[in-house]
């Protein structure tokens, strides 16, 4: 039984989720991949100060989470885990861009704060969409789908190994952390860290090589094969078309503003 490390990074939970059964899981990997790609392009194409217009796009991750019976708490934790990257990217914006662009009541809001908020929203949208895609499809089906769509084999294999070795490095790293903790050492000097990271790299390379060896021993030749090949149907086409229409609508007109105006007029 894997103890310790597994509990930290919840190794394999994504794989487990991808093997559940739901209408979302049953959709063609290519349909889901394509929809996610269109979603990412839509999110990234918004202006740098856009905040309210991004809001309606949250319907997508929420709807998919519900439809695919995915655990929202787990996905949120994963998004939070990666959040520091987005924070670092945008943290200096409020200090560098002080021009007032908007008002909340009588409070001025600078362009820096707006772009910072926009970065965080976009980060939450894109990362959650990626995680959901992975959780409802699984890396293997996803790679097979990407290959069917014409992605060169070398990229498909890179993607597959990147995912596989990410866990390998994670596990090795946590094993080392545990051994450091067991020796009662809480604060480590820079030198120790340097040596630890060097060891981590070497151990991960060794382990990765052994896994690769196991794969080629069983006939792996660079082609990703799946047992149950996806056969696209009308449901898949409807999924791509429906969501794409929604993303385009959200991109072209500010749905939040539109809904706000409608509600305001009714009142």
């Amino acid at each position: 039984m894997s103890m310790g490390p597994g509990n930290y990074i919840e190794v394999g939970r994504m794989d487990e989720l991808s093997r559940m059964d739901s209408p979302l899981h049953r959709l063609d990997a290519r349909a889901k991949g394509l929809t996610t790609l269109i979603f990412l392009i839509a999110v990234m194409s918004f202006g740098r100060y856009e905040v309210s217009a991004l809001m309606p796009l949250f319907v997508y991750p929420f709807a998919l989470t519900a439809w695919g019976n995915l655990p929202a708490g787990f996905l949120l934790r994963k998004v939070a885990l990666a959040a520091p990257f987005a924070l670092f990217v945008g943290i200096f914006n409020p200090f560098l861009d002080r021009e007032t662009l908007s008002w909340i009541g009588s409070h001025p809001v600078s362009g820096g704060w707006l772009s910072f908020a926009s970065i965080l929203l976009r980060f939450a949208l894109t990362v959650s969409a990626g995680l959901i895609l992975l959780a409802c499809t699984g890396i293997h089906r996803l790679c097979a789908g990407a290959a069917q769509l014409g992605l060169p084999r070398v990229f498909v294999v890179q993607l597959l190994f990147l995912y596989r070795y990410f866990f390998v490095i994670g596990e090795e790293g946590l094993r080392m952390v545990r051994s450091v903790e067991m020796r009662g050492s809480r604060s480590l000097g820079l030198r120790t860290y340097g040596s630890l990271i060097g060891h981590l790299l070497l151990r991960s390379i060794d382990r990765a090589q052994r896994i690769y060896r196991a794969m080629i021993s069983r006939g792996f030749d660079g082609e990703v094969r799946v047992l149950r090949a996806d056969a696209p149907g009308w449901k898949d086409a409807a999924f791509v078309a429906g969501w794409s229409a929604f993303f385009i609508a959200a991109r072209v007109c500010n749905l939040s503003e539109l809904v706000g105006n409608v509600v305001f007029n009714i009142l």
Binding site: D15, H140, A214, R218, G219, F220, E223
Partner: peptide, 16 residues
Amino acid sequence: FMASVFDDVAFGPLNF
């Protein structure tokens, strides 16, 4: 290295 025991056992024959 696969997600399920069955997928792992099927990996070899599938590659053949």
